[in-house]
Nucleic acid binder design. Structure first.
Lengths: 187, 187
DNA sequence: TATATTTCTAACCGATTGGTTAGTTTTAGG
DNA sequence: CCTAAAACTAACCAATCGGTTAGAAATATA
């Protein structure tokens, strides 16, 4: 009954996600988003309400991509070797984006302060918990490990993963390989 | 021959450093700095030239504090146990500042993009190299390790340290303890 | 083809950004 | 005590921030 949208929301969100990923939330201005998404500021606000709303959708888009890696992990029967493979897969995933900027969620957690938007903080917590649970569910398959050990190792691995996320931004592949091999030597 | 400064530059830099540490470079505005440092914008520009100049001095101030920990490490004869102690000392150091914000240099490295000020990028590189060398010099004291192993372990430890820096911001003490114990289990 | 509804363009909003400057206050040396 | 030099206050600057809005353009339905 009226004029139709000249853009697809999923498509433009992915473009926004890439820009946020490359530059961080604060550094990414509406001007830059207009250019990258190829649509006018009006359309961004019509579709996503605010810069925050667009960023939340971008985070969800990112998490969708990570979930593919997590599903691969959970469907594998490699045990701890599968988790190690996830670490390597994650590096490859971040390299695919042609700029090496680690994990968007970790970067966001590093950027925001306590006064940040509650929904964003919530998404960060959910995502971290989700990855930790994926690790724990794999570890739990080995019934020689009791729950205490599973929790300890999952806690260790999620922190090692946060470290890897930063490391992919500043260190070369041989150092990252060396890091991962050492991380998995201790479990 | 003229009016004298009503403030001490070292004192106000430390205040600026704390504000930058708490909020990051971009989020910290000149308004906030004026308030925290207790001096007028004019005086800040007279003493430090620019927001960037003030930030560089703040980074140097931070590194001076870390150097105290590194000196303690290099003067100890605890070997790897001394490096482990440095990890714990670092956590305590970040907790002392009443807001838990990890390592200012790591945070800065996470925040800036490729187009950032060259001097800042240089300082980050120098600092990372300095900490890595401190680790390497301790590892080298054990003459059962060859140079290749020393380099590998130093590379591993510097990445683990970057990870710890982020982790202090989001994880509680038991998880951090668990992380450190696992890190040092493998070397 | 007429109309109702939505999308779009582009100018605009107040607030805030980092940074500057004119003019006043202070103070040490002559 | 006078004066020159530095420190200070506070008003100001253009540019940019996220966000809004009036009016033109497009289009599915009647």
């Amino acid at each position: 009954m009226a004029r139709q949208k000249a853009y697809n929301e999923e498509v433009v969100v992915e473009k926004a996600m890439n820009l946020f990923w490359r530059n961080g939330f604060e550094t990414t201005s509406m001007q830059m988003l207009e250019k990258e998404m190829g649509i006018n500021k009006f359309s961004i606000y019509a579709s996503f309400g605010s810069k925050n709303g667009l960023f939340l959708e971008s985070l969800k888009c990112y998490m969708g991509k990570i979930n593919i890696l997590l599903n691969t992990l959970e469907n594998s029967d490699l045990g701890i070797a599968g988790i190690k493979k996830y670490f390597y897969d994650f590096i490859e995933f971040t390299r695919e984006t042609d700029f090496g900027k680690g994990c968007l969620v970790t970067n966001t957690a590093n950027e925001i302060n306590d006064a940040a938007d509650e929904k964003i903080k919530q998404v960060i917590g959910q995502f971290t918990g989700q990855v930790r649970e994926a690790f724990a569910s794999i570890l739990k398959r080995d019934d020689t490990k009791d729950q205490v050990l599973v929790d300890q190792q999952a806690d260790y691995l999620i922190i090692a993963m946060v470290g890897l996320s930063s490391a992919t931004r500043f260190f070369a592949q041989p150092q990252l390989d060396n890091y991962i091999e050492n991380v998995f030597k201790s479990i």
